[in-house]
């Protein structure tokens, strides 16, 4: 359980109450520090390559083939998973699912901790999840698990993730894959 913060009676740490805001354009956030994108990408790759059961959680914006970028990103995510030796567990939608989710195969923003506990996931990447649901899920994960969270966001990023990369599109994903390949050689 996370330490009680200014959010008082809630067990939830909320980064903005510790004065942590999303990184400015062109930068990334590594824990509480604003850093260069490459630095954050290296640390993200290292976390995924060195922690147990690394998993990528793709969201609806990349699962469904609704535009050309989504198709390209799906291909890149598959490639990234292979480089990182990561599992893929999808967040297909955001509904409170009845009667329950299968935590081995799905993640849900309303109780993302179930999937992380069940699969003993110690590092994960959120990609293609709408910002509100990513933020709701990231806060719960930070409170309930010891999973290292990484957000690849196409907008302004997520300060409740341990590493957040903002304005991430296909080009940035390609860059991340290349960095991951380098880091993989180093950590071996």
């Amino acid at each position: 359980m996370a330490t009680l913060g200014p959010s008082h009676y809630s067990p939830y740490p909320v980064a903005v109450y510790e004065n942590i805001l999303p990184p400015p354009p062109g930068k990334a956030l590594l824990l509480t520090e604003v850093v260069d994108e490459e630095v954050a990408m290296r640390e993200a790759a290292k976390a995924m390559l060195t922690r147990e059961n690394p998993t990528i959680f793709p969201g609806p914006q990349v699962i469904y083939a609704w535009n050309e970028e989504a198709k390209e990103k799906a291909r890149l995510i598959r490639e990234l998973a292979e480089v990182l030796g990561a599992k893929i567990i999808p967040m297909v939608d955001y509904r409170p699912k009845y009667p329950k989710i299968d935590p081995e195969k799905e993640i849900n923003p309303n109780h993302p901790n179930l999937t992380i506990w069940h699969n003993n996931i110690k590092a994960c990447i959120f990609v293609g999840v709408h910002c509100h649901y990513a933020n709701v899920a990231l806060k719960i994960i930070r409170a309930e698990t010891d999973c290292f969270t990484i957000a690849l966001c196409s907008n302004a990023g997520h300060e409740d993730a341990m590493i957040t990369l903002r304005d991430q599109h296909s080009e940035e994903l390609k860059k991340f894959i290349e960095i991951a390949k380098e880091v993989k050689k180093e950590v071996k």
Binding site: P58, V62, I63, Y64, A65, W66, N67, A70, K71, A74, R75, I77, R78, I88, I89, P90, V92, D93, D102, K105, E106
Partner: peptide, 19 residues
């Protein structure tokens, strides 16, 4: 209708009810 089409690369990970 494209918002229901699943990217081929990720299809194997998607629950049957969505497919």
């Amino acid at each position: 209708i494209n918002i229901f089409k699943i990217n081929e690369e990720l299809k194997e990970f998607i629950p049957q009810e969505v497919i």
